[in-house]
Design a protein around this nucleic acid. Structure first.
Lengths: 244, 244
DNA sequence: GAGTGGTCTAGACCACCAA
DNA sequence: TGGTGGTCTAGACCACTCA
């Protein structure tokens, strides 16, 4: 039986199921950390075979949006459960030691999007944004100076949130306080010399080589929701990238 | 029917098929760029269903070891076919312009593995190695100073090869001249200040911030076969990393 | 033991490609 | 038109988890 609607562009059934599941995730029908219905339940809901649902879930699971656990169920991915490592943090100690990560909040102000931020976050130029600056400390040593910009609208009330309480993970906080889940990010790396402000924040001389990490994070539907520039001291740390 | 041999550790059939296919790749039964037999042919060869072969190929395809082309067949991945971009090169121009990449060969000498290289390449300390240094030029501007070390044994005769002829791609050359295919790599990134030799090669002042990219490349069976340190000028370029 | 995801099969049909 | 990979189904059985 062909369940395909007549349409000029062919789309596999399992991709359509994937979209339906994603929509339920956006709508908040299943919350982060919770389990979604079993494959057979979803199959009967969408009137397809279990194998087709399976393929849709496989794909979402490969994108780290869902997590499968044999014998238990399929769960909505969350930044909360990552006990040991922050999901998007690729910076690790050269000697592999475990480290205590701390967050020193510097400022949080309302601003307006300039041309670049507007384009990057797909908002209007001049739209309200919130800018956060903070210092990340690894085992007592300040290593990353972060500059974060998010659109103000979906993050109303961010000013009042105590970022410290979230153990340095903005994503955990976004998820819990605003229901916004980041599922993907792009990072662009360069080597730069420390500017005056960063140098003093990290206790370095101006011009000292730093790893500049520009990150754009995306929520469901590939919508950009956060811009971030991290300047990292990499004398005893490195950024790990796996190529396939 | 259960085709599983009685054994303490359970391994899915499709993983065993994957190993068999990989062994044929190592043995050179199918060469890079060539097509492998159809799913049904492999299924009958290994006495499993087409779906099981399919799952094994899916997995190899996800690892970029095989390439599927609907209507044509499944092909052995190669570094030769990547016309536009080098498979492991993540460095691109900030403005997105296409660039002409050139390779300036500096030196190629026989050396012996020190403790670190021995450990990294899983060879004995003091074992013969070959060290290559070269300069990579983007649109006429020297941007990367590469230091490459490979074990001498599998690369016998590398000294005589004219690296220039391979358009800057060592991997293309390894594949064609030595039958060694890199399928995966790990990169560790830092920001460093240019040392004297690198500064003069790239036309910079000493201490100028450079992106240090340390790469270990692996061939089949996760065997490390090349160590590489690239020092990159990233004023007009960035390294792209996608996080999921 | 009941329920979940994971594997494996067999067969039907579809989309794409080349001759 | 025939061959290839791609999708979809239905059903059987296995491995894991938890009560």
């Amino acid at each position: 039986m062909n369940k395909q609607l007549i349409s000029p562009s062919y789309r596999p059934l399992y991709e359509q199921i994937k979209v339906l599941i994603t929509q339920s995730l956006i709508a908040g029908e299943w919350r982060p950390g919770e389990s979604i219905p079993s494959e057979f339940e979803l199959a009967s809901r969408y009137k397809v075979s279990q194998g087709t649902v399976r393929k849709a879930i496989d794909s979402l699971s490969a994108e780290n949006i869902l997590i499968r656990r044999q014998g238990k169920g399929t769960f909505v991915a969350t930044h909360n459960a990552d006990v040991i490592k922050l999901r998007f943090l690729r910076l690790t100690s050269v000697n592999g030691k475990k480290e205590l990560l701390q967050n020193e909040f510097i400022s949080c102000v309302k601003t307006k999007a300039d041309a670049y931020i507007a384009k990057t976050l797909q908002i209007k130029m001049g739209a309200a944004t919130i800018e956060v600056k903070r210092l990340l400390t690894f085992s007592g040593r300040p290593l990353i100076f972060d500059h974060i910009i998010v659109p103000a609208a979906p993050f109303k009330g961010l000013n009042g949130v105590k970022v410290e309480e979230w153990n340095g993970s903005m994503y955990r906080m976004y998820e819990s306080q605003f229901g916004i889940r980041m599922i993907r990010a792009e990072e662009r790396l360069k080597a730069v010399g420390a500017d005056a402000a960063t140098a003093s924040a990290l206790g370095l001389k101006e011009g000292y080589p730093l790893l500049s990490v520009e990150r754009v994070s995306f929520t469901y539907g590939d919508k950009p929701m956060e811009w971030r520039l991290g300047l990292c001291l990499t004398d005893d740390h490195h950024y790990l990238s796996e190529l396939e």
